[in-house]
Each structure stands twice: as C-alpha cells, then as structure tokens.
Amino acid sequence: MDARLLLLADSRLPAGGHAHSGGLEPAVTAGAVTDVAGLADFLRGRLATSGLVAAALAAAACAHAHTGDQAWERLDAEADARTPSPAQRQASRAQGRSLLRAARTTWPHPALEALATAVREPHHPIVLGVSAAAGNGTPHQAATITAYGAITGPASAAVRLLGLDPLAVHRTLADLASGVDRIATEAAAAPDDWAALPAPSAPILDLYAELHMSADLRHFES
C-alpha cells in the first residue's frame, strides 16, 4: 500500500476527525453503550449501515476523480439523499470541509480543486474518496479507509467517554476487521450508476444524531 494512503487513514491527520464520535456520545448519554460488548454491538450496526453508505460514496468519488470528469454536485446530492438526518448532514459537511482543507495542502491534485470549486462544503465520504485518488489509491482502498474510519472514530470516542480499556477496544476493532473488509468489497463492487449505490439506514443513529444536536452538554460535535 502507498504510504500516502496510510496518512489518509491515520487519525493523526489534522482534519478534525477527533471532534466527532459518530453517534457514540449520544448512545452513551442514552445509556445504550456502557461497556466493550455494547460498543462492539454498536459498531457492528454502524459499519453495516452508515459505514457502507460512506464507503460506497468514497469508492464512487475515487473512481470519478480518476476519470477527471466534473459533476461533483450530483454525487454530493446522492450523499444528501442517503442522509435524512439534518444533524448528520451537518456533521458530514463539517468533516468534509476540514478534510478538504488538509487534503489540498497534503496531496495537491486537480480533482480536489474541481471538487472544492463545485461544492462549497462537500460531504465527508466524497472528500475521502477524492483524497484517496489524489494519493493514487483505488476505489477499493478508498472504501476500506472509509469503512475503517466508520468504526475507529466511535471506538476512540468510547475510550475517552467511558474510560474503556484501550486494549480491549482494539481487540474489538480487530474482531471487526474482517467485517470492514467485507463492507469495503461490497462498497467497491457497487454499480457505476450512482442512483443505485447502497443506502442502508440506521434509524437509531438518525435519532441519536438529532438528540445530540439539542443536548446541553457535548464533548463531541456529533
């Protein structure tokens, strides 16, 4: 694997990812996740739903970046249509904006400029996919990085919020690794027709995202 892609997958990339818990904080607030077993169950559902949606959008964006075509607003609209929660759309665009800024400096590429010109605050998975392309990655690699991030972000948030044993949490992530690979494969195998990209929903994550927006005290933005 190209080391540029390792930089993209690294949580130390200064792209603001640490400020988002992927719905884990409201789940903790609701008492739904209290321990490592609960976290594993939460992550399994997240990976197969919003994780797959994001991975498929990232793979499509990566493939599209390699063609040099425009039409980024159309892919961005496909992300909107798969994100009914306004709070999740806002969080995705905020993360997209931060990553776009980091990526344009880190891996200058015409597709990143084209995306930035077409959409003011693109959705996060689209920026991830174009960044992967800028790092010479394949759509499958873009999907893997995205699916991986869909569980590692909430997992590290759980360590911080619940004081869980980091080794036990990493054991959980290792157990989910084959699931990440399966989701990435499904995402990368999705049809070229953007309309037909996967769209599995997670009603509880939607509800949590909205609850979190109206919460008085928040550690994470989402």
């Binding site: 992550l43 559902g45 909107d80 509880i204 994550l205």
Partner: peptide
C-alpha cells in the same frame, strides 16, 4: 430528477439490524 431520498432498511441479519445503533 434530483434525488430526494434513497433509503434502505435491511432486516436480513439479526446481528446487524438488532444492533443498538440500527433498530435494536
């Protein structure tokens, strides 16, 4: 012609849809 909503509910694997992040 603009997508407004694309929404799947996949209730085929209880380990996934029974997750506390999906439908519990």
């Amino acid at each position: 012609g603009v997508p407004l909503l694309r929404h799947e509910l996949r209730l085929d694997d209880p380990a996934v849809f029974g997750s506390r992040s999906v439908v519990g």
